[in-house]
Every structure is written in C-alpha cells, then in structure tokens.
Design a protein around this nucleic acid. Structure first.
Lengths: 231, 231
DNA sequence: GACGTTTTAGACAATGCTGTCTAATTTTAC
DNA sequence: GTAAAATTAGACAGCATTGTCTAAAACGTC
C-alpha cells in the first residue's frame, strides 16, 4: 500500500509519527524564500533545496504551493501572535520611571514585532499578497495590530486615570506611539534592512520623548534629543 | 530595411516620430500590472493587453522585461519627484494659523506622495525588489524622502527661529511629523487601500495636534481630538 | 498616392515551473 | 529484525512565459 502518505486535498501530509523536523525545516525555508522572492517568484525546488529536503517531500506535506504558502503565513502569524501576547502581558506599570519604561517597551515591541524576520515577512507578504488572500490576513489584522492598539490604549487609559498622562483619544495615542517608535526606522524597514541595537535605542528615545512632550504631565524635565539614525 | 526599429541593447525603441501615446500607454499599463503582480508575477502579455498594444510593440520599445521595469520605476520616480518639488516650493509660511497650515500640508503630502497610485507602486516595488536593484532605488531614497526630510527640517528651523515652534533636532522632528501624519493610515496602506478625503483630513488633524502639543509654543488652545479612522 | 516607419497577429524554440509518478532507499516504531 | 511509514532522485507531461521572427497591415508625412 504505497502512497498512503499522499496528502488529500486539505490534509496536512504525513500524519502519524514524529518527523516534525522536516516540517519545521520546510516551513522555515519556505518563509525565507517566499519573503525573498514573493509568492510568484519562489519555486518549490528552491524551497526544497534550502530545506535540505527533496521536492517530493514538500508535496507530501503540502499538496500545493499555495497550501504551503498559507501554512507558512499562518505559522509566522501564530508565532507573532504569541510573541505579542507575551509582550503585552509583561508590561510594567510603575508610573514612576514612566519614560524609561516606555522606552524599554518601544524597543521591545520594535525588536520583537516589527524589526525581526517575522515582521519583515509579514510586512512584505501582506503588502504583496494581501489583496489576493483577503481572509488569510484579515484575522491577523484584527488579532495583531488591533490587539496592540487596544492593549496600548488600555494602558494609556490607566496611566491617564492615574495622572501620569493626559490623553483625549487613547486609540489615537496608541497609534501615534507606535508610529513615533517607527519614525526613524521606516526607511530602513522599507528597504528590508533591520536596525541595530543602538538604532533601536535612539529611535525609541526620540519617540518617547516626543510622545511625553505631547501627552505627559508636568513631571518631565527637558533633555536634549539624541542624534538621528542615519540608516 | 525592416527591423530598423529593433531596439539595440540600451536603445529606447522607435526613435523618430511622434508615437508617444503607445509608450505612455505601455508605461501606464506596466506600472499597473507590476504593482498588482510584482515583477515575477507580471507577464509581458498581460501588460500588452492592458496597454491595448501587441506584445511585439512592447519589445520594440523595451528590449527586455527588465528594461521595461526599470523604465517604469524611473518614470514613476520622476513623476513623484516633480510632484514633491512643486509641493515643497509652494508651502505657506504664515506662522499665524500654523495649525491649519500644517494640517493642509500634511493632507497634501499624504494625498500626493504617499496615498496615491504612485506612492503605492513605489512602496510595494521598493519593498519587493529594493534588495534586487540597489542602485535603482538608491537615487530615489536620497532625492525622495531625503529631500522631504531636509526641506521639512529647514521649514521647522525657520519656524523655530521665529518662535512658533520649539524643536531640538529638526530632522527628527521632520521624520516624526511624517510618521504622525501616517499613524492613522498605515494599516490601510499596508493592505493596499487608499484613504478617503475625510480619513486624510482626520489623520492630519490628529497628527498636527499631537505634533504641536509636543513642539508648539504656548499659543495653542486645547481642542478635543477627532474620532479615530476605522479603515 | 507613395514611401518609410510602426504596429500587428501569429508562429516558434527555449526555458522554467508545477504537480505526478515510480521504484529504490532510509527512517522509525516496536 | 521487521514492517510500516517516510524520504529520495529522477523522469515526466502540461503549461506559462520570454524573447525572436516573419509577413501583412496600418499609419503618417510629403
């Protein structure tokens, strides 16, 4: 009874035993190649080679290129999702040292959500294929940015109620916080480059400083801005 | 002497007479298709059909798909460039009504640079092919965002000297101004959607309000923020 | 109307990619 | 060690695409 492993239409390939290493290796390689070449430009051969796997094995696990693509996107999204969750659940709310806390938070969210390989993948693929696979990214849209915004908004609401901030619209402030945190990095990110530690640091400092100038209460001393990121 | 119109390696196709309509039509269609499908996904046939032109005509004007792609990118970039120039050269510096002036400017720069078809094209293509064609986009990087930033920085320096603003680092402030102007629109832009007039308006209001809270001098009354953009 | 140029439709070879198939080989569980 | 499951290399058909070529048609200008 050969070919019993052939994946049916929506099956997920070899089902029973513990050969997860191949799957993981395929997913990882596929993410790399899809990110580099786009969906149309990526060839299954290239992915198989980069995964140290035969092409047939790829087709054993994922019946079509598109199935593989969807699996990769879902994999990256779920990783990004749990990363985001762990980040939001550990945010310190000390209120004293608010500036340093916000800087640390901005650095962490940039490093772990926007400025890593997964963030690059999602940005690129959503921008390219988002219109072609509306429902595939729609869930991410709600669970990713949507949850960041509302969690940040809730945080700002608490800080506002506690008197550390003075904010009218919490969601607007949340979007602005994220936008300011990317202000110095956007150009590099557009070109696919990832920032260094010190670029992350100075971008976050500049962002938080301006954010607190706009929304902070009168506790904050005025310090000079850091130098711009050349990127 | 047939085939005298065949483009040599770097020639630009049929040279003498006034058949610019075909060229323009090809460039327009190619921009559309490259933007929609990416470089690898776009077929020359598709472009020819969308341009109402035979495939051979495309090859008469541009000897390869890549030649056409470079021409399209340069065309879009030059259009974006002169649009940017006309925008920066007409900025009003009244200093009274600073808020409304900045709002109008933010709307105009978003509408004419980031949130139109050319902006969408450049964002998409740079993100996808930027690493593959480094020098092609490098000039844009300097002449596009670079000039916006420094022109805005210079403007802010003037306003700062005149006492309307209080800014430490003008380039940082310029980047932040642009980032704030996009804060409410980034998600739509990522998904390839273009904002409506009223979304542009409210995004700009929110941005300028926060910007002036951070950098304005004490002339500004406090008004409530507008509702968030749902897009 | 004549002439040179441009455009067109279609055929064409070369190439690369997708997805299938097969038969041999390796891995894994027990 | 054995048997089932998974992997491999390779060949393969089908298809789309790129870029070339040709001969006919359309165009523009004088």
């Amino acid at each position: 009874m050969k070919n019993s492993a052939t994946p049916e239409k929506r099956s997920e390939g070899p089902t029973q035993r513990g050969q997860f290493k191949k799957r993981a290796s395929i997913l990882e390689a596929a993410a790399e190649v899809f990110c580099r070449e786009g969906f149309a430009g990526a060839s299954v051969d290239e992915i198989a080679i980069e995964a140290n796997v035969s092409r047939q094995t790829v087709y054993n696990h994922y019946c079509e290129k598109e199935t593989l693509f969807v699996a990769v996107v879902e994999d990256v999204m779920s990783r990004a999702d749990q990363m985001l969750f762990s980040m939001l659940s550990t945010f310190p709310v000390n209120a004293d040292n608010l500036e340093d806390d916000l800087v640390a938070f901005s650095i962490r969210i940039n490093k772990n959500c926007f400025c890593n390989q997964d963030g690059k993948f999602l940005r690129r693929l959503i921008q390219n294929e988002g219109e072609r696979y509306p429902h595939l990214f729609e869930t991410w849209r709600q669970q990713g940015p949507g949850r960041i915004i509302s969690a940040l908004g809730a945080l700002f609401a608490r800080l506002s109620a506690g008197g550390s901030l003075k904010i009218d619209d919490f969601d607007v402030a949340a979007r602005q916080f994220l936008a300011l945190g990317n202000a110095d990095l956007q150009l590099m990110l557009l070109f696919g480059q990832l920032p260094t530690e010190s670029q992350l640091e100075s971008a976050a400092r500049n962002a938080v400083r301006t954010f607190l100038r706009a929304y902070g209460t009168e506790k904050l001393a005025e310090r000079p801005q850091l130098a711009a990121v050349s990127g």
